[in-house]
Write a protein that binds this DNA or RNA. Structure first.
Lengths: 222, 222
DNA sequence: AGTTTTGATGAAGACTTTATGAAGATTCTT
DNA sequence: AAGAATCTTCATAAAGTCTTCATCAAAACT
C-alpha cells in the first residue's frame, strides 16, 4: 500500500483528503507542519507528499527543499493563492511534480495522486514470481501452496509480495501491523520475519527470499 | 533537445506556448488536431505532449488513448473548462500526467513541462555513466551489477555517484555517515574508501574510479 | 637525496545490529 | 473462564560493521 504524507495545517482539509485517500486504499499520514513531516519521512517509507505551501511558518518550502536534496519523490503542492509566481516557484524552483489549488476537489486530488504514482512506479507485472496473493482468502501463495500465516505475518508478507525488490523499514512494516500507534519495540519485526522465513523454508530450503538490509529493514527478492 | 508536441486548435495560444518553449530551448511541433499529431508522433521522437482536450472533433482524447496504448510519454492536458469531471476523466481515465487550465500562463506551462521531463527522464546524465543508484533497494549499481555495500559505504558511494567529478572533503563525507556528531578519527574515511575501491575493483580491475585529492578528500570520476 | 607529510593497507578489536529460542503477556475462541 | 493461538519481550549468540592502529608507500617540500 502506498503511503501518502499530507502536510496541511487546516485539520478539516487534511481529514477530508485522508478520508478519501484511505477509501481509495492509500495509507495516509498527516502532519500540520513541515518539520514533523520531514522527521517522519526520514525514518519511513513514503511514496508521495501532498504539501500545502501556505503553512504559517513556511516550513513547507523547507520540507520540499530537504526532500529534493536526496530524492525525486513525487510532491504535489496544495496552494491557496492563485498567484502565478508562487506556483512557478514551487513547481520550477523546487521540483514539485504537480499542484492543485484550493478549494480542493477531493476527487481531483486523488486523481493527481494516482497520476503521479503511475509515473514514478510503472506497473511491475510479476509474471514469474513464486509468490501471489489470494486476497479474498487472506492467504499468501508460495510455490502454488497456501501458506499458513498468522495475521501479522500475513500483513507483512503480503506487503512484501506486493512491493518486491525494495527495502521496507522496520518502522514501516510495524505500521502495517497496527491500525493505530502502538508503542511496541521495533525489534518485534525481527521475530515476525524470523517466523515468516521459517515457513518459507519449510517449502523451499534452498533460497533466501527475504533479505536483511542492515540498519534499515527487509526486502523480498523475486 | 526535447521535442514537445502541441495539440491545440487555437493558433494564438499555440504560438505563444511555442514561443516561450522555444526560448527555453525546447523543440516544438504544433498541430491543430489529434490525427495529424498522432501521425507525427508515430514517425518521430517526441518527449512530451501538450494536449488541448477541447478540440472540436474530440480527436485529442483519441490521441491520448492511442499514445497510452504503447507508451507512458508524459502528457499535459490543457483544459478550457473548469469542469471537474473533464479533468478527472483526462487524468484518471487516460493517464495524463498533469493538466493546466485556460487562460494559460506561459511560464506555468513551461514549469509543468520541465517538471514532467524531470520525472520521466530522471538523471539520464550523459547516459554512459557506469554508476546508478537503486534507491528502493538502497544499492549502488555499477556496470549493471548490484554492489554489496555496508551502510557507511552506501552512504559515501551514493553521494559520490550523485555528485561526480567533484571533490568531497573527508569532513563532509564523515558527516554523511553519521546522523549525530561523532568524535571519530577523520582517517576512518580512508578505510571506507579503501573498501569501496576494493569492491569496485572486483568488477573492474582496469580503472580507478575514485580519485584522491591530497589534503582534501576524494572524487568520483565518470 | 633526505625529510616530512599524507594516504594506502591489512589486521585486530570494539562496537552495533540481527538472529534465535524461549518465556511471558495478550488476544481470541469456545 | 480455560485453553489455544498469537504477539511481544528478553537474554544470549552470532554476524556484520566501524574504528583504530601500526606499518608501508607515495608525494611534496627543503
Amino acid at each position: 500500500m502506498e503511503t501518502i504524507l499530507i502536510v496541511e495545517d487546516d485539520k478539516t482539509i487534511a481529514e477530508s483528503i485522508c478520508f478519501i485517500l484511505e477509501k481509495d486504499s492509500f495509507n495516509c499520514k498527516w502532519f500540520d507542519n513541515g518539520k514533523d513531516a520531514l522527521e517522519f519521512h526520514k525514518d519511513n517509507e513514503v511514496d508521495l507528499i501532498l504539501l500545502d505551501v501556505g503553512l504559517p511558518d513556511m516550513s513547507g518550502f523547507d520540507l520540499l527543499r530537504k526532500v529534493r536534496e536526496k530524492s525525486n519523490l513525487p510532491v504535489i503542492i496544495i496552494s491557496a493563492r492563485d498567484d502565478e509566481s508562487d506556483q512557478v516557484l514551487g513547481l520550477e524552483g523546487l521540483g514539485a511534480n504537480a499542484y492543485v489549488t484550493k478549494p480542493l476537489s477531493p476527487r481531483l486530488v486523488v486523481a493527481h495522486v494516482r497520476a503521479q504514482l503511475r509515473i514514478v512506479k510503472p506497473e511491475v507485472k510479476s509474471g514469474d514470481s513464486k509468490f501471489s496473493i489470494n486476497h479474498a482468502m487472506q492467504r499468501v501463495v508460495f510455490l502454488d501452496q497456501d501458506l499458513t500465516l498468522t495475521p501479522a505475518e500475513y500483513k507483512i508478507l503480503s506487503h512484501l509480495v506486493k512491493n518486491p525488490n525494495r527495502v521496507h523499514s522496520r518502522e514501516y512494516l510495524m505500521s502495517i501491523i497496527w491500525d493505530r500507534p502502538h508503542g511496541s519495540d521495533i525489534k518485534t519485526i525481527n521475530t515476525h520475519i524470523k517466523s515468516i522465513r521459517k515457513r518459507l523454508h519449510e517449502l523451499d530450503e534452498t533460497n533466501e527470499y527475504i533479505e536483511t538490509h542492515r540498519g534499515i529493514g527487509y526486502s523480498l527478492i523475486e
